[in-house]
Design a protein around this nucleic acid. Structure first.
Lengths: 200, 200
DNA sequence: TAGGAATAAGTCAGAAGTGACATAGGCCAT
DNA sequence: ATGGCCTATGTCACTTCTGACTTATTCCTA
């Protein structure tokens, strides 16, 4: 999988391992991330398999770098992979796993965690919104682009923005519902089903 | 991480490896999944570390099973983990990675993939909605529960339902926008910026 | 009576991913 | 001149995860 992400980036423009590393912890992080300890060995493997070629580039006052470019074979592999329908991603979310177990925690601690997580996602949301602003400034209003690359970039961005937006919303609504739940518990402590009767 | 998911389930009720495996490919799949080749060794490791204890249970007409139960040490570990704030999950989604590269594909192929993916997520959404119906039938309308376990179960479910809903919506809107994009391309082929003028 | 499904428990090789460690030159500020 | 940051490339040990293979019993159906 990582190899295809690399191929896609190299298809746009030849890059060094260092450049790739910056992308995988920067703009591309929306949908894929990788550390440099994964990238360098992967590039070597890909060169062995002729998907990419490297060229040594020396710079008067910088360490030499190896700039990788995609080969026709690499492009072929990329297109082939693109044609296959991806399977559903399994959802793996530590926060949800914890949420599932929150009944073991003091209610205030659960609230605290929800509030904190809302903040984390909101921060990432703002980052994505900024990226969108930046994209719009460079390429004009996105619904009118004529560049397929910009178009699909924008579509990808929309998805992660929507993801973060709905996550933040969920945290907030869970907080509200939890407070209501607690109020229900302290109000009519006696009858186990009092709340149901009141609502009906 | 897997160990905490296991501890949480064992806290509810002692289970065999086989039972756990069913949960990790069934109801619990919303937010965590694991194969049995992960579960069995993990249980052994956890028993070595005294987080769980196993008891051999023989059954007249079934293979013998090992039923695992959480220990006080295990519960302590679970509570401690629960108290720590989880970090943001990195988003890793093969579909989004492909979407980012769709400019390399024939437009019809991109449409096909989006439509197919919408269907996959819709199917999962329907599955979650059914789970919610089932939960409501058993425990009454969720906003009025008095059981913390049911409450947090419901909250977790709400999140994954919202996730799937927004994913399906995104697929559909991307499809629509893509068709508009293509129309814009074939309409005013000549001027590179004709579309912008028309919109303004 | 043969085969399939469900119950039950594993192993193992390999891929993927993480975090720490290692090295090295140049730039800039204190 | 010393320390910290940026460029630049790597290794290594470890954990996690995946998919395939293995074994055994019982129950039901064709």
């Amino acid at each position: 999988m990582l190899s295809f992400a690399i191929l896609e980036l190299l298809h746009r423009k030849p890059l060094s391992g260092y450049d790739l590393r910056k992308r995988f912890s920067g703009s591309i992080t929306f949908f894929w991330k990788a550390g440099h300890s994964q990238i360098y060995p992967e590039l070597k493997r890909m060169e062995r398999e002729h998907l990419v070629v490297s060229r040594r580039v020396t710079h008067p006052y910088r360490p030499a770098k190896k700039v990788y470019a995609i080969t026709p074979e690499g492009e072929e592999a990329l297109r082939q992979w693109l044609g296959e329908a991806p399977a559903l991603q399994p959802i793996k979310d530590e926060m949800l796993l914890k949420c599932f177990a929150f009944h073991l925690l003091e209610p205030e601690q659960a609230d605290q965690q929800l509030a904190h997580h809302a903040e984390l996602h909101e921060r990432r949301l703002n980052h994505f919104l900024e990226t969108r602003r930046w994209l719009t400034e460079r390429h004009g209003p996105l619904p009118t682009t004529r560049d397929p690359i910009v178009f699909w970039n924008a579509m990808t961005l929309e998805r992660v923005i929507e993801f973060e937006r709905s996550y933040v919303e969920w945290c907030r609504s869970a907080l509200t519902l939890h407070r209501e739940f607690l109020a229900r518990m302290t109000n009519g402590q006696a009858g186990a089903d009092a709340g149901v009767g009141e609502q009906a």
